[in-house]
Design a protein around this nucleic acid. Structure first.
Length: 825
DNA sequence: ATCATAACGCTTTTT
DNA sequence: GCGTTATGAT
C-alpha cells in the first residue's frame, strides 16, 4: 500500500474509533468535539448541550490530542495497527485502552488547557463535570473566569509592570468609594459627574487599552470638555489604586493584556504554557477580553470560542457581539459550527423563543428545534396588581407541590431585583421555602465589609481605602480631624496612611492623637504577626477578640443579626481553608473579591429560586414563572428609545424563555407600584411577539379572564417519573380543587373600577370563604406540607398567624392566605 | 461622638 | 418605595 493511501485510511479509521467515545453526541456536537486544531467558532443555542461539548472537547484533547483532527500518522504505525483500527472502527461501545493509545497523537497535558468562562458558576460546573469525566487529573485544567485567570497570571508575572504581586482586588463598591474621594478632591460635582458613570467611562477606556495619559490626550483633542475632567479623575483614580497596590476588576484584564502585549518574554511564557484556549459565553466578552484570549492562543491559534449571539445580555458593561460577528475575519481559517438542537425545552417554548428573537435584526440567525414534542403551550396570566401577581405565583406553586412537584422545580424570574419584594412577601405568607439570588450581597453588608477590611489591611497595609474604613471602627477615639490630617499628610508625601500613622510623632499636627494612633498601629502589627503564624480560622477569632468588634456591637436585635453574619463569614473562611490547596489570607481575599453569592446558588436545595433573568443565564427549571411582562418594565423604559437597547432586552427575553424545560407561565399586572408610583402598563410587546399558537392568553388582555392553576396534570406526573424523582404521594383533592380562586385579586376581579365582571372564577373572591376556626392542638392537613399540629394561633387584625408543627419542622402561616390549602382533621 | 431625622437619589442587569 | 447618605441636634 502507498504510504499516502495508508495514512488516509489510518486517519479515517482513527477518527471513527475516537468517535465511538462520543457516540452520545449528535453530529454537530461530535464535529465540535473532534475539531481540535485551529480556530473554531461554536454557535451554540440555548440548551444545545454546549457544556457537554466543552467537556468532551477537553476530554478528547487530553485523551487523543490531535488524533481526531490531524491527518498526521506516527512513523511507527504499520499495516497491523491499521487493521486493528479498521476492525475497531466498526464496533461500538467504549474503546479499549490499548486501542486508545494507537489513536492518540500527542495527548494534551491537562494544564495546557485553559477554559475561560464568564461566571464562577459556569467555571465551577465545568470543573466538577471535568472531574467526573476525567478523574482528579482534570483539576489541572485551568477552568476559571477571565478575572480569576488574570489574577493567577498577574500574581506570577505582574512585577514587570511595577505592580506588587501581592496586590489587593477592589470590587465595584470599593471603586465607587475611591472615585467619590477623587471627585471630591478634584472639586467635581457628583451630580455632574456621577461616580458610576465616570467609572464607566474609565472602564471603557481600559477596554480600549487607554492609559490615563492616552485618555487625557484624546480628551484634549476632543470637543467634549467633560472628558478632560474625566481624564483627571482617571489619572487620580489610577494613581490611588497603584499607591494602594490595588487593582479593580477592569485592571485585572487591562494589565494582563498589557503584560502579554508589551513583554515578549511573558507572552512567550504564557503562550508556551497553554496550547489550547477555550472561551465560553463568547458573546459576553469585551474587546480586551477578546485580545487576551487571542494573545494566549498565540500563533497556534488553537482557540475555540463558544457563544450565542442571541444570548448576549451584557452589552451595557462592555460586551460586544462584534467579537462573535467578526471571528472569521480575525481568524481566517476559522471553522464555524452551529448547534441548534435543543435538549432542554419542549416545542412550544422553543417556538415562542424563536419567534421573539426573530424580531432582532443584529444577529447571525439560528433556529432552535427539538425532538421532544410540542409539550404545553405557554400561558399568560394577567393580574390586577403586583400583589395579586405574586400571590398567583405563590399559590400556583403550592398547588403544584401538593400535586407532587418539588419546590426546587420552580424559578421565578424578573427584570429587576426590586421585583423580588412582592414575591417574597407572598412566599412568606404561604410559608414557601425560597431563595433570592443576588440583590444585596452578603459581602456588601457593613459588618462584613468591616471584617474584610481588617483582613485586607492586615494583608496589605498600603490599602488606604480599607484602612480608612476601620481606623475608627469600632470607635477608638481617632476622629474625623485626625483622619483628615492623616490623609492630607499621606497625599502630600505619597505614602500610605498607615505609614504616616506609624510616624505620628514627627508631625506636630498629630501630636494629640499620637497615643491612639500608636495603639491602633500596634493592633495592626500584632494582627499581622498573628496572621502569619495562625491558621486562618483561628486568626479570624483572634481578630474579633483583639479588635473588640463584637463587644462594640452591643446586643440589640440588629447587632445579633450582625453577629450572625460575622459568624457566617467565619464559616466562609472555614470552608475556604478546607477546600483551597494552600489556604492563605491573600487567597481568601481573592476569593471573596471575585466570587459573589450568586455562585453559591444551589438549584438542588429544596427551595423555589427567585432571581433576575441575568442571574438565570445558564440555568434551567422544569417550570418557570416570568413575572412583570409589562411595557416599561420589560422591556425597561430606559431601553425603548434605542433599537440596540431594545434588541438587548429582547435577547434577555429570549434567555428567560429558554430557561424553561416543560412549563412556562408569563405574568403581568395591570397596576404596579414602581419607584413610588402606581403605574399601569400594557402587556409587554414581547408577549405580542409570541405566536398565538404557542401561548394561551386572555382574549381581551385589558379585561383579563384567566383562571387559576389547576392541579398538575397527568403529563406532569409522567414527566416527574421520567426524571426519577420520588413522589410524595399522588395528588389528592384538597380544598382548592378545580379552578377555585383562593384569594381576591385574580381573575379580573376589579377593584372599584368600572370593569365588567370577569367570566373567570369568582366564587371565593365574591363571597369570602369563612375561615376555619383553629386553635392550638388542632390537627390539620396542608396541601403542600402534609399533616401538622397547630402549635399556636396569634390573632391579628382581620387575620391570624398560625404556628404549625409539620413533622418536626415549625412553619408560620397566615391563616387567610393558607386557608385554601388547609383542611381541619 | 452618636443618634435621629431629613433629604436625596436611585431605581437594569454584574465579574 | 426603598435604602443610603447628608445634616443637625444632643
Amino acid at each position: 500500500m502507498e504510504r499516502n493511501e495508508f495514512e488516509r485510511r489510518f486517519f479515517l479509521a482513527r477518527r471513527q474509533v475516537i468517535e465511538r467515545d462520543f457516540a452520545h453526541l449528535n453530529d454537530m456536537q461530535k464535529k465540535s468535539v473532534l475539531a481540535t486544531e485551529g480556530p473554531l467558532l461554536l454557535l451554540a443555542g440555548a440548551g444545545s448541550g454546549k457544556t457537554t461539548v466543552l467537556i468532551d472537547r477537553i476530554a478528547n484533547l487530553i485523551r487523543y490530542g490531535r488524533g481526531s483532527d490531524s491527518p498526521e500518522v506516527p512513523e511507527e504505525m504499520g499495516e497491523a495497527e491499521l487493521a486493528l483500527l479498521e476492525a475497531e472502527a466498526g464496533r461500538t461501545g467504549p474503546v479499549p485502552e490499548e486501542v486508545r493509545e494507537l489513536c492518540a497523537l500527542d495527548p494534551v497535558e491537562p494544564w495546557r488547557v485553559i477554559a475561560i468562562t464568564f461566571t464562577n458558576k459556569a467555571a465551577d460546573e465545568l470543573k466538577a463535570r471535568l472531574e467526573r469525566k476525567l478523574g482528579p487529573g482534570a483539576g489541572d485544567v485551568w477552568a476559571m473566569t477571565f478575572h480569576s485567570a488574570c489574577v493567577r497570571i498577574l500574581r506570577k508575572s505582574v512585577e514587570v509592570l511595577g505592580i506588587s504581586p501581592n496586590f489587593t482586588i477592589y470590587d465595584a463598591a470599593d471603586s465607587v468609594a475611591v472615585m467619590k474621594r477623587v471627585l471630591r478632591e478634584l472639586n467635581l460635582d457628583e451630580k455632574q459627574f456621577p461616580p458610576k458613570s465616570v467609572l464607566g467611562a474609565i472602564s471603557r477606556a481600559k477596554d480600549k487599552l487607554q492609559s490615563p495619559a492616552d485618555f487625557a490626550a484624546a480628551a484634549e483633542k476632543g470637543w467634549d470638555p467633560r472628558q478632560k475632567y474625566i481624564a483627571r479623575a482617571y489619572t487620580e483614580y489610577a494613581r490611588r489604586l497603584l499607591a494602594a497596590d490595588a487593582l479593580d476588576f477592569d485592571d485585572l484584564i487591562y494589565y494582563t493584556v498589557l503584560l502579554l502585549r508589551d513583554y515578549p518574554e511573558e507572552r512567550a511564557y504564557w503562550q508556551r504554557r497553554f496550547h489550547y484556549v477555550l472561551v465560553d459565553e463568547y458573546q459576553d466578552t469585551s474587546h480586551a477580553q477578546y485580545l487576551l484570549a487571542a494573545m494566549l492562543a498565540g500563533e497556534r491559534e488553537n482557540i475555540c470560542v463558544v457563544g450565542d449571539d442571541d444570548q448576549s445580555i451584557y452589552r451595557f458593561r462592555g460586551a460586544t457581539i462584534e467579537n462573535i460577528l467578526s471571528f472569521e475575519n480575525r481568524f481566517k481559517n476559522a471553522r464555524v459550527i452551529k448547534l441548534e438542537q435543543n435538549y432542554r425545552s419542549t416545542g412550544h417554548i422553543l417556538s415562542a423563543a424563536n419567534a421573539v428573537i426573530r424580531h432582532n435584526a443584529e444577529r447571525r440567525g439560528k433556529n432552535l428545534w427539538t425532538s421532544a414534542g410540542d409539550g404545553e403551550k405557554l400561558k399568560l396570566v394577567v393580574s390586577d396588581g403586583d400583589d395579586a401577581e405574586a400571590e398567583f405565583v405563590a399559590s400556583s406553586i403550592v398547588n403544584a407541590v401538593a400535586g407532587g412537584m418539588r419546590w426546587s422545580d420552580f424559578a421565578v424570574l424578573y427584570r429587576m431585583n426590586v421585583q423580588s419584594n412582592r414575591l417574597e412577601y407572598a412566599f412568606k405568607r404561604l410559608a414557601i421555602p425560597y431563595k433570592v439570588v443576588g440583590g444585596t450581597r452578603f459581602f456588601d453588608r457593613a459588618e462584613i465589609k468591616d471584617m474584610t477590611s481588617y483582613l485586607a489591611v492586615v494583608n496589605n497595609p498600603a490599602d488606604d481605602l480599607r484602612l480608612l474604613r476601620i481606623i475608627n471602627t469600632p470607635a477608638r477615639g481617632i476622629g474625623d480631624t485626625t483622619v483628615e490630617r492623616l490623609r492630607a499628610l499621606a497625599a502630600a508625601q505619597r505614602r500610605p496612611i498607615l505609614d504616616i500613622a506609624a510616624d505620628a510623632g514627627s508631625f506636630p499636627e498629630l501630636k494629640n492623637a499620637a497615643g491612639k494612633l500608636a495603639k491602633f498601629l500596634a493592633l495592626i502589627m500584632e494582627l499581622r504577626t498573628l496572621s502569619e503564624t495562625m491558621p486562618l480560622e483561628d486568626f479570624y477569632d483572634a481578630l474579633l477578640e483583639k479588635t473588640g468588634y463584637l463587644e462594640a456591637l452591643g446586643d440589640s436585635d440588629e447587632a445579633l443579626a450582625r453577629r450572625d453574619n460575622i459568624m457566617e463569614l467565619k464559616s466562609n473562611i472555614v470552608s475556604y481553608a478546607a477546600s483551597a490547596e494552600t489556604p492563605s489570607l491573600a487567597g481568601f481575599l481573592d476569593e471573596i473579591a471575585l466570587y459573589s453569592d450568586l455562585d453559591s446558588v444551589d438549584t438542588q436545595g429544596e427551595s423555589v429560586i427567585l432571581m433576575t433573568i441575568h442571574a438565570a443565564k445558564g440555568l434551567e427549571f422544569p417550570w418557570v414563572f416570568l413575572v412583570g411582562m409589562e411595557e416599561n418594565l420589560f422591556p425597561s423604559s430606559r431601553s425603548t428609545d434605542s433599537e440596540e437597547d431594545l434588541e438587548e432586552e429582547r435577547r434577555l427575553c429570549y434567555v428567560a424563555l429558554t430557561r424553561a424545560k416543560r412549563r412556562l407561565t408569563l405574568t403581568a399586572a395591570r397596576r404596579r407600584l414602581l419607584f413610588g408610583h402606581t403605574t399601569a402598563n400594557a402587556v409587554s410587546r414581547f408577549v405580542e411577539e409570541i405566536p398565538d399558537g404557542d401561548i394561551d392568553k386572555p382574549a381581551d388582555l385589558r379585561m383579563g379572564s384567566e383562571g387559576f392553576t389547576r392541579e398538575p396534570d397527568p403529563e406532569w406526573l409522567e414527566y416527574r417519573r421520567r426524571e426519577k424523582t420520588p413522589f410524595p404521594e399522588a395528588p389528592r383533592r384538597g380544598l382548592v380543587g378545580g379552578s377555585e380562586t383562593p384569594r381576591r385579586g385574580f381573575g379580573g376581579v376589579s377593584q372599584g373600577v368600572r370593569r365588567p365582571p370577569a367570566e373567570g372564577p369568582k366564587t371565593a373572591s365574591q363571597s369570602p370563604k369563612t375561615l376555619p376556626t383553629l386553635s392550638a392542638g388542632d390537627v390539620i392537613r396542608h396541601k403542600a406540607f402534609g399533616e401538622g399540629t397547630v402549635v399556636a394561633v396569634t390573632s391579628m387584625p382581620g387575620d391570624a398567624l398560625l404556628t404549625v408543627n409539620f413533622n418536626g419542622t415549625q412553619k408560620r402561616l397566615m391563616l387567610k392566605a393558607a386557608a385554601p390549602f388547609i383542611t381541619k382533621k
